[in-house]
Design a protein around this nucleic acid. Structure first.
Length: 269
DNA sequence: TAAGTATGTTAAG
DNA sequence: TTAACCTACTTAC
């Protein structure tokens, strides 16, 4: 689930459901219990998302900083909340809604200053309208690191994960092993614009879809079925399957402890 | 029941 | 580069 689109969607969902209301805050699992007790009953008055970081603001009381990591998951729904299981790290509850957080890498009560410091460490986020792709380009254009690694580096671009990385490189016919310094400005501008488009759609649909039927050759017939992770994609987790466009086998390799996927026919150096 | 996997990140070596 | 962290689901036996 958790790439930037998931986090921005969670921010919207929490804003709609809880902003302006007194919220019961608890930690059935216990690891956030002390902070939860101090925030319990306060008014949630703002939310923010930057890359994969979610911030829930409480009136005059700082923020809860959440990072889902690889396993973190949210369950949101209408009141009444189901009986809490012992894995619920953070539960918010109002008269009308509940929100349960399980398995996050981070769930911490922080100050405004700490929130700023976290944001300062992150690169521009395609889902934040005022963020500037030039800041990312300044690093990419000077870098001897591969484009694949740069796109996953949250200090360069915030919010892109393993799925969007693989898919955006495919959509722009870029070999993942190209070096940052060998990317053209036009290519970067197109990637940034495409990420903004794809990720906004991801927020809207709460899943990642990157395949466009009109780009599929007639000979390939029907569009691909929905993949395990929920969306329709060109290369992510399609190792050894035929490319939807050229028919060659999708390749996979480990890069910095993550699985990279690409089409050797469509993505050339 | 156990093993393996996952859309992530940090810290230690 | 590796291990560690956190959860849930799928697959193997």
């Amino acid at each position: 689930m958790p790439e930037g689109h998931t986090i921005h969607r969670l921010a919207e969902d929490h804003l709609m459901r809880f902003a302006g209301w007194e919220v019961a805050v608890s930690s059935p699992q216990g690891r956030f219990a002390e902070s939860a007790a101090l925030l319990d009953g306060r008014i949630l008055d703002g939310v923010d998302a930057h890359g994969k970081h979610l911030f829930l603001g409480f009136k005059e009381s700082g923020w809860i900083h959440i990072h889902l990591g690889l396993f973190g998951k949210y369950a949101l729904g209408p009141a009444p909340a189901p009986p809490a299981t012992d894995t619920v790290r953070l539960r918010l509850a109002s008269d009308d809604y509940f929100s349960d957080l399980r398995g996050p890498t981070t769930c911490a009560w922080i100050t405004d200053g700490e929130k700023l410091a976290i944001s300062d460490r992150l690169g521009p986020d395609p889902l934040r309208n005022r963020d500037d792709p030039d800041r990312a380009w300044a690093r990419i254009s000077r870098s001897r690191t591969t484009v694949a690694a740069l796109l996953m580096d949250q200090k360069v671009v915030a919010g892109v994960g393993n799925v969007y990385r693989a898919e955006v490189l495919f959509r722009h016919a870029i070999d993942p092993y190209r070096l940052g310094k060998d990317l053209t400005r036009a290519e970067w501008d197109a990637i940034w614009a495409d990420l903004a488009l794809l990720m906004r759609e991801g927020v809207r649909n709460n899943r990642i879809d990157t395949v466009r039927d009109e780009h599929l050759p007639e000979a390939m017939g029907r569009p691909p079925r929905v993949d395990d992770h929920g969306g329709e994609v060109y290369v992510y987790r399609r190792a050894n399957m035929p490319c939807h466009i050229c028919g060659r086998e999708i390749r996979t390799a480990a890069l910095a402890a993550r699985n990279l996927f690409w089409c050797p026919g469509c993505q050339v150096r």
